[in-house]
Design a protein around this nucleic acid. Structure first.
Lengths: 142, 142
DNA sequence: TATCAATCTTTGATGTATCAAATACATTTT
DNA sequence: AAAATGTATTTGATACATCAAAGATTGATA
């Protein structure tokens, strides 16, 4: 009755971890020097130019501290540049370098492919129900 | 179309993180000195006495190395004891202490309560579909 | 039985998560 | 303008994730 297997949070954790490992392995196989989280951060900056780290953190639901550190690594890897924001010097201006844009583009098709493989055999309807359920759980726990 | 919001893996990640934060906060509020992952490990040992670390890792889908380190902390916290397995000295015998059993029991009702809150308003059918979908995704990525 | 291969666990290196406290700057209040 | 309050980011501490390599032990093979 209380077996781990039957618990939805266990399934969630397992699915997300398996997918991450799978996706990360694909990145490695193709010699892309980037992690999934780093990819997500760059992607979010590209979709929202001028975004602050705080909003960024909320968007990718990471801790501010995590974002700080991921950005540090991305700057080291030359995928991002950061400058002081002249209007508000607490903030920093984050811009994606050409190299950063380039790797996002290159990785893009791989990501689509991964998703396709991961979702094979899942109907559109089930997918929507799952998505809705996950969002409901999120709301309930906020 | 390619917005983060609509991507199921994003929803999964968000849901599991929100739930974890929520559950961990409840543990802290009640002054239970244990993390969710540690709880999970003890629970798995209790359900499978004599289990090896490797099988344990598989059961809770963690890396062997992670399990090693979590167990170290659990031994430090006096929730677990480890001895050399006399039959196979590569392995170690893990036993849950009385204190370990005690905290699992105490935390149990809290866990049930958390789940209930998290799943409020989710129909049994949607839950089953979600669970099935998550398992399918897991299979696809192995 | 000495060697080789397989198994279980640990260690090291690097990346991420989370909380709390500290910094640094900005805005509001007095 | 000085003080209080609020906001954005960083830092420190601790926990967990993942890979690769190393250790230790066992079982199979030559």
């Amino acid at each position: 009755m209380d077996k781990l297997k039957d618990i939805i949070f266990y399934s969630m954790d397992k699915a997300i971890k398996t997918y991450r490992t799978f996706a990360q392995k694909k990145l490695k196989e193709n010699n892309y020097k980037i992690t999934i989280d780093q990819w997500l951060i760059i992607k979010a900056i590209l979709e929202n130019p001028g975004i602050s780290q705080q909003d960024l953190a909320e968007m990718v639901f990471k801790d501010n501290a995590s974002v700080t550190r991921i950005i540090e690594l991305l700057v080291q890897s030359k995928y991002l540049e950061r400058e002081n924001n002249p209007n508000d010097r607490r903030k920093s201006n984050l811009t994606v370098t050409l190299e950063g844009e380039s790797i996002i583009k290159k990785v893009h098709s791989l990501v689509l492919q991964n998703r396709k493989i991961a979702l094979k055999g899942v109907s559109q309807e089930d997918l929507e129900i799952t998505n809705r359920t996950l969002k409901k759980i999120t709301e309930n726990c906020i």
